[in-house]
Amino acid sequence: MKLAYYPGCVAQESGKELDMATRWVCRALGIELVGFPSFSCCGSGFMDEANEVLNVALNARNLAIAEKAGLDLLTICSTCQGMLSLANVRLNDPTVKGRVDAALKPLGIEYRGTAKVKHLLRVLTEDVGLDAIKAKVVRPLSGLKVGAFYGCHLLRPADEMNWESGEEPHAFEDLLAAVGATPVYYRGRVMCCGFPIQFVKPATAERISARQIDDAKAHGADAMATPCPLCHISLDGYQNQAAKAAGHRLDMPVFHLPQVVGLALGATAEELGLPRHMVPTDGALAKIGSKAVA
């Protein structure tokens, strides 16, 4: 399997460990990643609020790059997945398409609308398949209770994302079970992490992320895992602030999706960039008998 790898901004910067873990897992599962240094930022939902058509045009350019290479896109961020998919949806509007085409044509860029955008979670559960992953597990995550945290834009609007239920998904839990972990079901798993307003009103953003972490914990989670590096920033990066907002300790290790898979397939903590996390993952690793990180 060969895919156009769209890592997104965060996985190339503060969330580098996500990129490391993705590359490790894809190598282990025989997924060939083709990089394109010409991909631009997806707009992260923020640009869409300032100028929708410009955002769609920039993403049409991204999609055209993959289309020209004859490849589908692989995203590793719920927000990238959402914004690139939305560009495909919004280009169905003739007015939007007209303005976008007019901006791209002078640059010699044509997007015919055929590039598919797939998040790693979908590629793993649908294209690679749970049985194939199960067959490669060398260190089942037995005894580890993990709360999946989806990230809004991977799921919703569900009629436009055209995959899982927007409120009752199960792909991530299925994957967690396949690598031997015990999935934890809690309401917060499909809710917002607070990230979109982290810079608008931090106190509210932190209350929201603390709520989801508390919810996962109340349902017995030893750790959380997310397919979105922006959720990871809220849940892990700012967890100390969220704890202050909540008025109690949270102490919740938060994995990136490919880290959970990588651990089960035998990667070391260092190969998956676990020492880069703000909240130590040692406790969770001890549960599955893996070497603790410094």
Partner: peptide, 12 residues
């Protein structure tokens, strides 16, 4: 206005 999280739960 800017406290909307664009989580789209309302749309669902």
């Amino acid at each position: 206005l800017w406290l909307c999280l664009r989580c789209h739960l309302c749309t669902e």
